[in-house]
Nucleic acid binder design. Structure first.
Lengths: 333, 333
DNA sequence: CTGTTAGCGCATTCAG
DNA sequence: CTGAATGCGCTAACAG
C-alpha cells in the first residue's frame, strides 16, 4: 500500500514552475499563460496529480460538501429526492454526505455532529421538527440549514417544499366534489413525521356535516396499507373512498380491497399521495397527488450552493403539488 | 455569518493546557490524567469545540470517508443496500459519500475522480464492469475497492455478493421442477448491468430440449414489466410462467396479466427476484429470490473499515440468495 | 503573468 | 503524564 500520490510541489519541480502557479492552474485562475497552463496540466496527468482535499479545505475552510439527513431512504419518494440532490451537487463539484435518522431526533443530532466534524458546510433537513440542540449546534457555527418536504411561510428557518396541510385538504375536497361522503384515511406513523401530521390536519380541515372521515394509522409500507384497509373494512363497509397519504399505502389498499372482493374504483375509490414512478402502471392507474420531489432536491441543492458561494440568502420556496386524475377514483352519482 | 468555531488552541488557553494534551484527549489517548481529561472535555463543551476535520485529515492522511458509486438509488434493492452501508459506517465513525453513475462508465469515472479529490479512502463499486481508467486511478494511489452485487471467485478484485448466474439457473430449475416448460423471462436493460447479463446466462444454462425460454428486455420499472408481459402474451399464449429478474418487473407483470384477464397463478405463474419489502404483501404473495442486500451492505462496509484500520485484507465473500416459496407460482400437473 | 511567504488546525515526534 | 516544535499540502495575499 505505497500511498505515493503526487503533491503540488512534485508538479512544480517537474515543470520548473512554482507551486503558486500550479495552484492557479488547478483552480482555474485566468491570469496564467496558456502555454504554462498546458505544461502544468500535462505534468499533472503524467504524475497523476490530484489536489489534496484536506489541505485545500484547511486552507480555504471550504469542503464543498453538503449534508442531507433523511428519515429513510427506503421510501421511493426520498430516493428520488436524494438522487436529485446528488445530481445537482455533482454538476457543480459538490459532494453529498448522507445520514439516515430513522425519524429519531437523537440519531439525527448525533449524525449532524458527525457530519459537521466531517466538514459539511450546510445541512438539508427533512420536515420542521428537530431537536433544539441541533439548531444550537448549527447556529453557533453559522452553518446554514433548510427544512424540506414542508412549506411554512412563517417559519424562521427557510422551508423549501410543499404545503402538506393544504394538499391533503385539496385531496379531501376533490373526493367530496366527486360525491364521496364516507372516507377512510390511511396514513403512516403520525408521531414520526410532521408531514403526516400536517396532512391529517388538512384533511380534518375539510370536514363538514355529513362527511365521515376516519383515520387509520399503520406502518408506512405496502403491508401496512393492506392491513389498514382490512381494518377499515372491518369497522365499516360504507366507505366509498380510501385516501392514502402515500402511494405505497395505496398500493397496499388496492391489494387489500381486491382480497376483500371489492373492485376499484366501482366499489371503493382509492387515492394516493406522492406519485411514485409506478403509480400510473398500477391497475387501475392511481389517482394521486404529484409531489415535486425531484424539483425539490435540485432547488435545495442550488440554493445552498449559491449561499455558500455568493452569500445569496436562502429563499423559502413553495413547490406546488398537483392532483393527477387517473382511474382509481370514480364520481358517485 | 460569523464563523467563529472554537479551535484547539482556544481550548488549550481556556484550560491552561497545551494543544498536545487537548489533542490527546480528543483522540482518546490513555496517557492522560483523568482530571485533566475531564477539564478538557468540559472546556470543549463550553466552547462548543469540534476538531477541524480538514486539519485532522491533513495531519493523519485519513478522512474516515468511504465512497459508494451505485447505478441508481431509485430501485429499492439499492436503497436497502445503501442504508445498510450507511448504518454500518456510521456506527464506526465513518461517513458515506454517495455518487450515482446512471450505469454510465464515464460518469462513474468522473465521480470517482471527484470523490478521490474529496478524500474518499476506499470505494464500493457495483458489478464487475468498469472503465480500466478507473482501476488505474485506484491502483496508482493504492486506494482499495470492491465489487458488490456480484460473486466471482476468480476475480482479481475482491467481490462481495451473490452469484447471479447460479441464482437465475436455480430459478429456472425451480420452475421446471414445478412442471413449467414454457417460460417468458422478463429482464431490464442487459447492456447496462452485468448482473442482468449473468442472470440471462444462468437461465439459458438451465435450458434443455422441450424447454421454451423466451427473453423480453424492457425498462427496469413496473411499467416495463407490464409492457413486457403484454408483448410476451402477444407473441404466445402458451407461457405458463413469467420469470422476472426483478420484483419490480414482477409487479408490472402481475398487473399486465390482470389486464389480459389471466389469473395468477392459475393461468400464469409469476416469479420475482430481489424480495423487496412489499413482495409478500402483493396478491398473490410473490414467490421470489431473496437477495441479502442488507447483509451485503454491512459486510462490505465492515471489511473496508477493517482494511483501512488494521490492514486486514479484503475477503471475497459469497452471500447466498434463496428461493422464497409463496403463492405466485403453481405446480403444473 | 509568475514567485515568495505565511498561515490554515491539528497530530505527532521528542523532551522533560 | 504534559509541553514545545515541526510539518501535513495547499491557497492567498503580496511582490516583482
Amino acid at each position: 500500500m505505497t500511498r505515493k500520490v503526487g503533491r503540488i510541489r512534485d508538479v512544480a519541480s517537474e515543470t520548473g514552475l512554482s507551486i503558486a502557479t500550479i495552484s492557479r492552474v488547478m483552480n482555474g485562475a485566468k491570469n496564467v499563460n496558456p502555454d504554462t497552463r498546458k505544461r502544468v496540466l500535462d505534468a499533472c496527468k503524467k504524475l497523476d496529480y490530484l489536489p489534496n482535499p484536506a489541505a485545500r479545505a484547511l486552507s480555504t475552510s471550504k469542503s464543498k460538501t453538503i449534508a442531507a439527513i433523511i428519515p429513510t431512504i427506503e421510501h421511493s419518494v426520498f430516493a428520488k429526492y436524494v438522487a436529485a440532490i446528488e445530481n445537482t451537487l455533482a454538476e457543480n463539484g459538490y459532494s453529498l454526505v448522507l445520514a439516515i435518522s430513522k425519524s429519531d431526533l437523537e440519531v439525527e443530532l448525533t449524525a449532524a455532529r458527525k457530519l459537521l466534524g466531517m466538514g459539511a458546510e450546510a445541512f438539508i433537513l427533512s420536515g420542521a421538527t428537530h431537536s433544539s440542540d441541533l439548531f444550537d449546534l448549527f447556529d453557533r457555527r453559522g452553518v446554514p440549514y433548510v427544512f424540506t418536504s414542508v412549506w411554512d411561510k412563517d417559519s424562521t428557518v427557510p422551508t423549501i417544499g410543499y404545503d402538506n396541510r393544504s394538499l391533503a385538504k385539496q385531496a379531501v375536497d376533490y373526493l367530496k366534489t366527486k360525491g364521496h361522503r364516507s372516507i377512510a384515511v390511511l396514513h403512516g406513523p403520525a408521531q414520526e413525521s410532521d408531514r403526516t401530521l400536517a396532512r391529517i390536519e388538512g384533511a380534518k380541515a375539510s370536514g363538514e356535516d355529513g362527511l365521515r372521515l376516519d383515520f387509520y394509522e399503520t406502518t408506512l409500507d405496502v403491508a401496512g396499507g393492506k392491513a389498514a384497509i382490512h381494518q377499515a373494512l372491518a369497522i365499516s363497509e360504507d366507505y366509498t373512498a380510501a385516501l392514502c397519504f402515500s402511494d405505497v399505502l395505496a398500493l397496499g389498499a388496492l391489494f387489500g380491497l381486491g382480497e376483500a372482493g371489492k373492485s376499484i374504483p366501482d366499489d371503493v375509490s382509492v387515492m394516493g399521495f406522492d406519485n411514485l414512478d409506478w403509480s400510473e402502471a398500477v391497475v387501475p392507474p392511481l389517482t394521486t397527488i404529484n409531489l415535486p420531489a425531484r424539483q425539490m432536491g435540485s432547488t435545495v441543492a442550488s440554493q445552498l450552493m449559491d449561499l455558500l458561494e455568493t452569500g445569496a440568502p436562502l429563499m423559502p420556496t413553495e413547490l406546488t403539488g398537483k392532483i393527477l386524475e387517473r382511474q382509481s377514483v370514480v364520481t358517485l352519482k
